[in-house]
């Protein structure tokens, strides 16, 4: 018995949008979200009924977000990995979360590990299957990423004070 796709969207739209924002950046997140759900809809009739729908969607969101990030950067340099630094992340005027600057500076593996674990709800083992490497290396990437973000949050708030 398969639920109507509307229920899938209603239950997971917000989670997928969070993941897309974190991985593709706030400017490309909407495109990544739409392509994720279109891909999901195409495959939905053949999804096994017992599948973990959220994990399935996060995997698709990963693929679509990476596609978008790559296609944005191909003009500069075709690369097999996510571009480093803040090349693909724009800051919408309305969004003044300074954390995006720090997120953009994370190495891709750290950024993706945080996105899929903390926003997408995937266990590290499953993230390792998506990204390659060992479960431990993903756990470490996530924890290093959190540390790096914490350091930059502290730095930013210190700057706030001295300003």
């Amino acid at each position: 018995m398969k639920q109507p796709f509307e229920h899938v969207v209603a239950q997971h739209a917000a989670t997928v949008l969070r993941v897309c924002r974190f991985v593709a950046g706030p400017n490309d997140a909407d495109d990544a979200w739409a392509e994720t759900f279109i891909s999901a809809m195409r495959a939905y009739p053949t999804l096994p009924p017992e599948a973990n729908v959220q994990a399935w969607l996060v995997r698709i969101a990963h693929n679509r977000s990476i596609d978008i990030v790559r296609s944005r950067s191909t003009h500069a340099s075709p690369s097999e990995t996510l571009p480093h630094q803040d090349s693909t992340i724009g800051l919408p005027e309305a969004q003044d979360h300074e954390i995006w600057i720090s997120v953009a500076q994370l190495p891709p593996k750290q950024r993706l590990a945080i996105a899929y674990h903390y926003l997408g709800g995937l266990p590290f083992k499953e993230i390792a299957e998506i990204l390659g490497g060992t479960t431990e290396s993903v756990r470490k990437a996530s924890s290093d990423g959190i540390k790096a973000l914490r350091a930059s949050i502290i730095k930013n708030s210190a700057q706030e004070v001295t300003r």
């Binding site: 739209a13 969070r18 924002r21 974190f22 979200w33 759900f37 903390y118 959190i146």
Partner: peptide
């Protein structure tokens, strides 16, 4: 840090409706 991430990626209903 997790709170900051959660806040920064928080979707509003208008965005969800538009998507």
């Amino acid at each position: 840090v997790l709170d900051a991430i959660t806040t920064a990626t928080q979707p509003d209903q208008a965005s969800i409706d538009r998507l």
